[in-house]
């Protein structure tokens, strides 16, 4: 017994703050929100058990739930590939021995570090406003731009461009990945007169697959969680016409505007399952397209 204590005491002493946090701020709340999702709870009267009612309502009758899913999925499927493509393109240009690479790297990364701030969301509102910067530029080349923030069919693009603008982090990770591709492969391909396009598809892309995969999972989870910019740009409502009703915003409003805590908890659990499912799918399919270098087939 004494020996057991001696072996474990230091470890658990150092782990103690995390353990407390884990039970009270992560594991406990996750279970609590599962329990709450089976209740109606307005924070004034005690939770009232309603079984699966809220899930049934969500899937059978809640049209705003489907709208939120549609908006969020559209955003994820547009913004993540766009961001990764820009990130990879710029990383490839930077990779080939450019002088002053440090300056470019820093300049391109700056938007990522500022991107989630409220100040930048405010800026984006003005860039895309009816008489904003973008439309002023378009007017100079004779295009009459739409009012991006008031027109539900284009409003999502304001957020997609904002997400694309922050390609800095995946770019840095791609740069590190490109560095680790052996240069002699390209030299050999050059001798065999393989075109640059061929080299990209036959060497760069397959060898970069693990890094692409890593970026994809990370950026997808990140995109599902988008909140700050949406809140400011859509006036906290998802307007116009629910076209910016991101899932996180819908959940937030159900909880802290209408105080439907039980229903919001059900929404939170569905979000958790969606993110888990996406991550799972990414991992499951990865063995068909991601090959690690030291792996033997």
């Amino acid at each position: 017994m004494k020996k057991f204590l001696q072996k474990n005491a230091p470890g658990y002493v150092f782990l103690a703050p995390w353990l407390v946090g884990f039970f009270f701020l992560a594991a406990g709340p996750i279970l609590a929100s599962l329990v709450l999702s089976f209740t109606k709870y307005d924070m004034i009267s005690p939770p009232q058990f309603v079984g699966l009612d809220q899930y049934i309502f969500m899937f059978e009758r809640d049209r705003r739930f489907y709208k939120a899913l549609q908006v969020t999925f559209s955003f994820v499927f547009l913004s993540v590939p766009a961001r990764l493509i820009v990130a990879l393109a710029i990383a490839m240009i930077l990779d080939k021995g450019i002088r002053a690479i440090g300056i470019y790297r820093a300049l391109y990364y700056l938007p990522s570090i500022l991107g989630s701030s409220i100040a930048v969301a405010i800026l984006w509102r003005q860039v895309f406003a009816g008489e904003g910067v973008l439309n002023t530029i378009l007017a100079q080349v004779g295009i009459d731009g739409p009012n991006w923030l008031a027109n539900p069919s284009v409003s999502l693009y304001t957020l997609v461009t904002l997400a694309m603008w922050q390609f800095g982090a995946p770019m840095l990770i791609f740069l590190a990945g490109l560095r680790s591709i052996p240069q002699d492969l390209y030299e050999a391909a050059e001798i065999d007169a393989a075109s640059k396009v061929r080299q990209f598809f036959a060497i760069t892309l397959p060898l970069l697959a693990p890094v692409i995969f890593f970026n994809l999972v990370l950026q997808m989870i990140d995109a599902f969680k988008t909140f700050n910019s949406v809140f400011i740009i859509s006036n906290g409502l998802g307007s116009p016409a629910d076209s910016l009703l991101f899932y996180t915003l819908y959940l937030f409003n159900e909880a802290f505007k209408f105080f439907r805590m039980g229903y919001a908890s059900a929404l939170a659990w569905v979000l958790l399952l969606i993110i888990a499912a996406f991550t799972f799918i990414a991992f499951m399919t990865s063995r068909y397209w991601v090959h690690y270098e030291n792996e033997r087939d």
């Binding site: 992560a26 996750i30 989870i221 969680k225 959940l251 939170a268 979000l271």
Partner: peptide
């Protein structure tokens, strides 16, 4: 210490959990 790998796995899992899920409780 005992259960180290178990706790470590749990810690890594919390990386994935969106803040919105724990927010209400």
């Amino acid at each position: 210490f005992t259960l180290k790998n178990f706790w470590f796995a749990l810690m890594m899992m919390t990386l994935m959990i969106p803040y919105h899920v724990v927010l209400i409780p």
